[in-house]
């Protein structure tokens, strides 16, 4: 089984357990994240960005087939999100992923791991394929925004992120 097929299965499982869900936003795109802990919430945010960019499959009608996604040598790249609080760290991390994909040419396949360092900076390691991948993306995402961003903590960690598209 190839890595990309695994990617499809991987995403299907995420959608089935509803770890991120695209919700109505009039002009842009919003996603609700839910997780059992802090690290998973950030991971789910990254997964949502990957689905938004690649459409592999996001369960909302933007799906695409394996023929439409780039192939190449797989490698792992890292990104980080710093900030005053978790809301800032989340926005910065998601925007770093957008930059890695839309500027540096990474086609993201899956999130390998997410960790917080002693100063609360969050780092993530992503498996991807690097090259001229921009034309394969489903859409251009300008940024994750701070609009009404508030992370609810507790037994369930929840938030909603609005992306400017």
């Amino acid at each position: 089984m190839g890595r990309l097929t695994q990617q499809l299965i991987h995403y299907s499982s995420f959608i089935n357990v509803n770890m991120f869900r695209f919700v109505e936003h009039q002009a842009d795109i919003a996603v609700e994240l839910e997780a059992g802990d802090r690290k998973s919430l950030f991971r789910n945010g990254l997964e949502a960005v990957i689905a938004l960019l690649t459409g592999v499959p996001d369960g909302e009608g933007w799906e695409r087939t394996l023929e439409e996604i780039p192939k190449g040598k797989e490698d792992i790249f890292s990104i980080k999100g710093d900030g005053y609080d978790d809301e800032e760290r989340l926005v910065n991390l998601l925007n770093e992923l957008l930059n890695a994909c839309q500027i540096d040419g990474w086609w993201p396949l899956e999130v390998e791991s997410v960790n917080f360092s002693y100063d609360d900076t969050v780092r993530a390691w992503i498996l991807g394929v690097r090259g001229q991948v921009n034309r394969y993306f489903v859409r251009e995402i300008k940024a994750a925004t701070y609009h009404n961003l508030k992370i609810d903590t507790g037994a369930i960690w929840r938030t909603k992120v609005v992306f400017d598209v």
Binding site: E24, A27, E60
Partner: peptide
């Protein structure tokens, strides 16, 4: 000015 979200428009 939009009246349908992108998601709603696609659906």
């Amino acid at each position: 000015g939009r009246i349908l979200s992108r998601k709603a428009a696609v659906q």
